[in-house]
Design a protein around this nucleic acid. Structure first.
Lengths: 244, 244
DNA sequence: CGTAAAGGTCTGGAAACTAGACCTTTACCC
DNA sequence: GGGTAAAGGTCTAGTTTCCAGACCTTTACG
């Protein structure tokens, strides 16, 4: 389990490049840019973020090294979001997982708790507008034509539910957790298998929220978000862990 | 209600002085340094935080301007935590409150939700060690000799309960919220009146957690943390607001 | 084959941060 | 009372980071 930080330890200053890299990776994790998408050009990013182009380039170098993006030169080039598992060797995955395993345990536990709270609160606070939005998001999800689309609609549905709490901070926490989990596990591809597993959960969750059944919503959410955790556990096992 | 931030807006870089100021004010809000305490000397702080003394001084200037500390020169001098309401005029209080009222509404709502979650989870996860710690903290709180001590024990009891969730992130969130609320309302003095109001709540909360009654714990926590909110509302009314 | 749109590189200057020396104030102790 | 220690207050020089902008190179498209 991660430690509580000491009250007055050293201050680690993040360079501008690191901060930009964090922003960008978060945006990618939140689906702002999907697989294969091109990020804005360096000059555009520099303008958007109001930093120098050099800082943007420092960030892109980081993301490239992390395997998150791929940079192509020339006209029509730019930084493209890469399929995550593409070239990361299994041993590097294993090392990453093992090194941070305690953190992940805590992170997933945290996420399950928070998402249960969000579901519970959403069920208690849903207005008619919220209900309409949830229904629309659920329909969109269930009509997904391919995994990429399913993933987008999945994210969107959960976002709509988070918004139903009518608390911007909870929404932000939801997004923060989503991005942390996505980046932490390097975003396993969204397969039809996962889709099929998530589908009934989403329906149950939506119905509980729509029906105002807070307890049930909390419970279903708890189970649902165990999916990611289990997927990670399976992955860890596949990669060859020795721990339970 | 606070807005959701745009995905790729300008990046606001915090200067080292600001970061140090944030660290220090958080430490104060969390009770690391209580009213009247002396902070470590500038040179010590610089060494602890691994920044230059100038940066520490920049931070102390900020905190002084904010009225959070008072700096005395000469031997035995230093930065002392000040009684918050001491010299801030009512109009400045009023302006601060009104300017951030939407934020506060969201913040307190958020806090109530999170603290309910913490209480609920603590009730579900308490071990014998946790129970002993909670009992000890409750006893200490109830035996407080003066408001200052009561405040410390109050904080400590809630911290112990947060730790009972066995999730370091929840603990951190608890502390983050505590510090944000404390700083936001400039920490109204902890009076016997508040103590008397909090006392039965604490007992109920502790009993619910000790007894593993998650629902009751969540409910009591929700009511308890409405205290701060109501105190703020009363303050706002006293200061002369016109809104409900 | 020229041009436009992208990344890649370089340079000069501005701003922030640091390290350290030195000054001033104040309390305590002899 | 005078000395001294411990604190804040000030100044300077040097380093690092960041920025703005010009310019080069690569590549696709018309």
């Amino acid at each position: 389990m991660a430690e509580e930080p000491p009250p007055l330890g050293p201050l680690r200053a993040a360079t501008t490049g690191e901060q930009v890299a964090h922003r960008l990776s978060t945006a990618i994790a939140l689906g702002e840019f999907s697989l294969g998408d091109r990020l804005p050009s360096e000059r555009e990013l520099a303008a958007l973020l109001e930093v120098s182009r050099e800082s943007v380039r420092a960030a892109l170098r980081r993301l490239t090294e992390a395997g998150l993006i791929e940079v192509r030169r020339g006209r029509g080039g730019g930084a493209f979001v890469r399929a995550q598992w593409a070239e990361s060797s299994e041993t590097s995955v294993r090392e990453a997982l093992l090194a941070q395993w305690e953190d992940f345990e805590a992170l997933f536990d945290y996420r399950r708790l928070i998402e249960s709270l969000i579901a519970r609160t959403a069920a208690q606070r849903a207005t008619d507008d919220d209900r309409a939005a949830i229904r629309a998001a659920l329909t969109a999800f269930e009509g997904s034509a391919n995994p990429a689309e399913a993933r987008r609609h999945d994210t969107e549905l959960h976002l709509v539910i988070a918004r139903t709490t009518h608390n911007a901070r909870l929404v932000r926490l939801h997004q923060l957790l989503l991005s942390e989990v996505s980046l932490g596990v390097s975003e396993e591809p969204y397969t039809w298998e996962i889709y099929e597993e998530a589908r009934p959960h989403h329906r149950d969750l939506a119905e509980a929220v729509l029906g105002g059944d807070a307890e049930r919503a909390a419970e279903v959410a708890g189970e649902h978000f165990a999916i990611t955790e289990n997927a990670l556990r399976r992955l860890a096992a596949r990669v060859g862990r020795d721990r339970p």
